[in-house]
Amino acid sequence: MAENIKVAYWPGCVSRGFTPELHGSMALVAQKLGWELVELDRANCCGAGVIAEHNQELADTLNARTFALAQQTGLSMMNICSTCQGAQSECQQRLDADSAYRAHINEVLSGQGLSYEKDKGGFTNKNFLWLLVEDYGLDRLREQVVRPLTGLRVGPFYGCYIVRPKERLGYGEHPDRDIYLEKVIEALGGEVVEYDGARKCCGFPVITMARETSLRQAGTHVGDAIDAGADCLVTPCPLCHLNLDMQQPEAAKVVNRDLGLAVLHLPQLVGLALGAEPRELGMGKHIASTRWVEERLTAATAA
């Protein structure tokens, strides 16, 4: 537990696309925590469940390639996206289930000097949230806090892919994975807001296919959090962030009410408690203003 964290880091597509503030804030927080991230800059998209819907073997091979690239570094892997976690865990489960299937997938990878091996050196692929709680530890995190989030009321928003299905996502060994966000908020000195949507769907997977269904989901959860008194939401999933933050003005139209609730990426919330400035964490890039969060923190520091 006490050793330093060094991982092969898969940032995902969206953190370098429409949520660049996530990529930047993760780098800053890693530096503050003393984590070493070896970025997998040759790795490919996880397929987000969409490629598996088209061709399961294709999704499995693409992710086997990413795992193999991570295994080449001799390190375990970290992701910063619930959807990457879910899509990659799904493929890893199939790959790990059967050596013949693994050998079949490795056929094409071997031509590229790569191979995915089950459990090689205790290989794992964990979201930043899981790594923070299970490997770094909440006690160490508490010690690093220089600006406790006193008085900040935070609603957790997990993203489906990191909470279900439980059997695939290691809940047998780690049954509390669906209350880690609450534990982190508490460790950072914030206050957990209970509301209906924390483990529900943001609607993003159907934003192009069933726009109204999608935006009604996002709008309902944001609205419920506001009604429960939240100052902001926090999420480990950039795709949820797209629907909850970037689409928030559109979601407000569908649910026919005013919204306007800041949605923070998990590394941003951690970063604020570690003393980083909102600007350094890219909070100005959000669509829903984060000014209220900043004011609450300034008020708490002054008091």
């Binding site: 490919n44 061709n55 073997e57 294709l58 499995d60 693409l62 094409v108 990878l109 031509g111 590229q112």
Partner: peptide, 20 residues
């Protein structure tokens, strides 16, 4: 940078299209 590797994966998987 090595997009050809990704394309090779596509060729292989589209040919077999296994469902496990």
């Amino acid at each position: 940078p090595d997009q050809d590797d990704v394309k090779a994966i596509y060729a292989h998987a589209e040919e077999h299209n296994e469902e496990f």
